[in-house]
Each structure stands twice: as C-alpha cells, then as structure tokens.
C-alpha cells in the first residue's frame, strides 16, 4: 500500500518536461526521454510485483522511494535550468548526488537501509532540538509529531 501511494505521483512527467524544454540539445532530449520511459517501466513493474503473498522488504522499499525521489529532483533541476535559476539548480544537484550515494549503498547490501533511516531520523531530531532550544515550539507539540 505504501508503494501504491508513492506510485500515484507522476513520474512520467520527465518525458513530458523534455518535450517542453528549449534549452536541451537533441542528444540531451533523447537521453532524458529514454530515462523517463525506462523509469516508468521499472517502477510500474515493481508496483505490480508487490502482492499480499510477496511483500517487498525494507531495503527494497527504501530503494524504490529513493529512486522516485531522484526522479522528482531531476524534474526540478530541468525546470530551474529552463527558467535560468542556475544557482538553485546546482544546490539541487548536490542533493541528487547524495541520494545516489545512498541508493548505491542500499543496492550493495540489504542491511544498509538502516543507515538511511538513522540519518533521516537524526536530521529530524536535530531540527526539533534546535527549535526547542530557541523556544519556537513547545514540548506538547512533540507528542503530536
């Protein structure tokens, strides 16, 4: 169910975006269109393969969610470069590479998804602690989170 909810996001938009962008070369356009088609095929197949009998493991779920995140980020990079906001596009690229490093780690070993969970959790906890120190939020709200 978790993956089906993720699947509702439009990852097919990569090919649609490539059609609209004027700053892409013919080579770049062809490659991005191919990536979009390949990505949609891969994700639809993984969604099909998930059933009640054969449930995906924690590592597989993190790999799929990271892959969808990477695709969404790629869309945003194409849009920002199209609008001429290159400084922001470079910042987005930095995040994309960090996500690819995590993807490679998760692909290498089935236990590595725990690193991703730990990293995400500690980042979340760090922000909450900072907000508490600056007295922006109360302790009562933490229980809601």
């Amino acid at each position: 169910m978790f993956l089906l909810n993720l699947g509702e996001s439009n990852f097919d938009e990569l090919t649609l975006l490539a059609n609209q962008c004027k700053k892409l070369n013919k080579k770049q356009y062809k490659k991005i269109e191919l990536f979009g088609r390949m990505a949609t095929f891969l994700i639809t197949n993984t969604l099909k393969s998930e059933s009640e009998e054969k449930k995906l493991t924690g590592n597989q779920i993190t790999v799929v969610s990271l892959f969808i995140k990477i695709l969404n980020r790629a869309e945003s990079i194409i849009l920002t470069t199209e609008r001429g906001i290159e400084a922001d596009a470079i910042l987005l690229l930095r995040g994309l590479i960090e996500q690819i490093i995590m993807l490679k780690l998760c692909c290498d070993d089935d236990e590595n998804y725990k690193i991703y969970v730990k990293k995400a959790f500690l980042a979340q906890k760090g922000t909450v602690n900072e907000l508490l120190d600056k007295k922006i939020i109360n302790i009562k709200i933490i229980y809601v989170i």
């Binding site: 070369n25 770049q28 892959f67 990477i70 990079i77 194409i78 470069t81 290159e86 690819i100 692909c107």
Partner: peptide, 18 residues
C-alpha cells in the same frame, strides 16, 4: 545550463543503472 544538464544526465543514468 548545458553543463548542468549534462551532469544531471550522467548521474540519472547511473541511478537507473543501479
């Protein structure tokens, strides 16, 4: 934008490969 798009394509290809 040309360089940014090229690096994006290289990394996206790697992600799909993995």
């Amino acid at each position: 934008s040309h360089n940014i798009n090229n690096t994006l394509i290289a990394f996206l290809g790697k992600a799909i490969g993995y």
